[in-house]
């Protein structure tokens, strides 16, 4: 006999745990992304960019634009921009840190997660 109530409960738990797993892994990704952003030996992005929504980042440069509302950009666009900005802008001053293997694909995913989360208009 099928216990419909039990099934529902299991199903619900599945949904809940899946979403919490998702939430924590995104949090972890966001956290990792911030670290890549501010660490000199990793992305060192703050050398050139200030970030909307994260005023705690110290001493940002102004060679690049302040990063704002990046949650409105497609993820792929941001990934490509960080992988190799020369693709969309031949004269950019921004270094191709993915293409030159300074940071990994996973780290770029983390940067995108962080930037989309933190620059959301609140």
């Amino acid at each position: 006999m099928i216990d419909a109530k039990k099934l529902l409960a299991v199903a619900l738990m599945g949904v809940i745990s899946a979403s919490t797993v998702y939430a924590t892994s995104n949090d972890a990704l966001v956290k990792e992304g911030r670290k890549v952003f501010v660490t000199k030996k990793l992305g060192n992005c703050l050398a050139c960019h200030a970030v909307q929504g994260d005023p705690s980042i110290p001493q940002t440069g102004d060679i690049g634009p302040k990063l704002v509302n990046l949650n409105t950009y497609p993820k792929e666009y941001l990934f490509d921009k960080i992988w190799d900005p020369n693709k969309t802008n031949k004269n950019t001053l921004m270094p191709p840190m993915g293409r030159s293997h300074k940071i990994t694909k996973h780290q770029i995913d983390a940067l995108v997660a962080y930037l989309q989360e933190i620059t959301k208009a609140k």
């Binding site: 050398a47 050139c48 001493q59 940002t60 440069g61 102004d62 060679i63 001053l93």
Partner: peptide
């Protein structure tokens, strides 16, 4: 040249 007059982190170029 291009970066002169801008800042790289806290460093004025």
């Amino acid at each position: 040249v291009k970066g002169a007059g801008k800042r790289l982190r806290a460093e004025a170029l």
